[in-house]
């Protein structure tokens, strides 16, 4: 059988190459700046790098030291508390607001932008604002005192045990409106006839949401979880602006830990090891999700 397909004309061959050529700068950048850099950082985490990178292989020593550091344990514990509360509260508020907004609310067009605008701000601005609002001297506590509620106390931001919760408050304020938008889009995507059928079947509003609507919002829950958890692991700016990691080291998170160990405490190897652990955490969450997304679209 003769293969007569050997000689494509110049134009066809050119048109075959142009797309790959166009894609190649982005691909090259990605391979170097993302995956190459990841490989490099992973390598550094196995070296004795201090202030500058060194290339001596010391095995898992950095990881062993890292898990022996109380600072790291503080950061990890804080991340656990923060991520759990941040994700849970954002989801509850987001879902609640979305369901309520979906009740043919007059003024929906005005309320939605109000709920959403915080996400246009940088965490630095959010942190600055909430830092002073929660400051006992001039913030909420002072206001309540001036309004006559003398016994009101709200000094969490200065309290080692409570400061991490102020981070949760500010972060929830910034992101919960966005979660609301995700759920609202999910709600609006549900086929109205399903709701009508459920009502004809005699479902109360409560049961309608519990048994029909919320299960149907599963994809929105999944997206919200993925986005929020990845934001939680990456949280850095908010801590810097709101508490600076303090009081003391009470609100340290892995992101701030990595930065300070790498750039101010001259323990680049340990910093790299902590970054690798952060990456692994996010990869564990993102990879199955992205895999499912891509498979579904292919």
């Amino acid at each position: 059988m003769a293969n007569s397909n050997t000689q494509a004309d110049f134009r066809t061959r050119l048109q075959d190459w142009i797309p790959k050529l166009v894609l190649s700068p982005s691909l090259a950048a990605m391979l170097v700046f993302v995956y190459g850099f990841i490989a490099f950082t992973v390598y550094l985490s196995f070296t004795g790098s201090k202030m500058l990178p060194k290339y001596d292989w010391i095995g898992f020593e950095n990881y062993a030291r890292l898990w022996g550091l109380s600072h790291w344990w503080t950061a990890i514990t804080n991340l656990g508390i923060f991520a759990f509360l941040y994700i849970t509260i954002c989801t509850i508020i987001g879902l609640g607001l979305a369901i309520f907004l979906d009740q043919k609310i007059r003024g929906e067009g005005m309320l939605r932008p109000i709920y959403l605008y915080p996400m246009a701000l940088s965490f630095i601005v959010t942190g600055t604002a909430w830092k002073w609002i929660m400051d006992p001297g001039i913030g909420i506590e002072n206001t309540m005192h001036l309004w006559g509620w003398e016994s009101f106390e709200f000094g969490w931001i200065k309290d080692r045990d409570m400061a991490i919760y102020t981070v949760v408050i500010a972060a929830v304020w910034q992101t919960s409106g966005f979660v609301m938008a995700m759920f609202l889009a999910g709600l609006r995507g549900i086929d109205n006839e399903i709701l009508k059928a459920a009502q004809i079947d005699g479902a109360s509003n409560w049961n309608l949401y519990r048994r029909i609507v919320i299960p149907l919002l599963r994809p929105a829950f999944l997206s919200a979880f993925v986005i929020l958890s990845h934001l939680a692991v990456k949280s850095y700016d908010l801590i810097i602006a709101l508490t600076g990691g303090g009081p003391g080291r009470a609100t340290e998170l892995p992101a701030t830990f990595m930065y300070s160990y790498t750039f101010t405490r001259n323990s680049m190897g340990i910093g790299a090891a902590s970054a690798v652990i952060m990456l692994m955490t996010i990869a564990a969450i993102m990879t199955p999700y992205l895999y499912a997304e891509l498979k579904e679209k292919a």
């Binding site: 850099f37 990178p53 850095y236 993102m286």
Partner: peptide, 10 residues
């Protein structure tokens, strides 16, 4: 979605 800490040093 990578945490940018992983690329800061390089």
């Amino acid at each position: 979605f990578i945490p940018f800490q992983i690329v800061l040093i390089p």
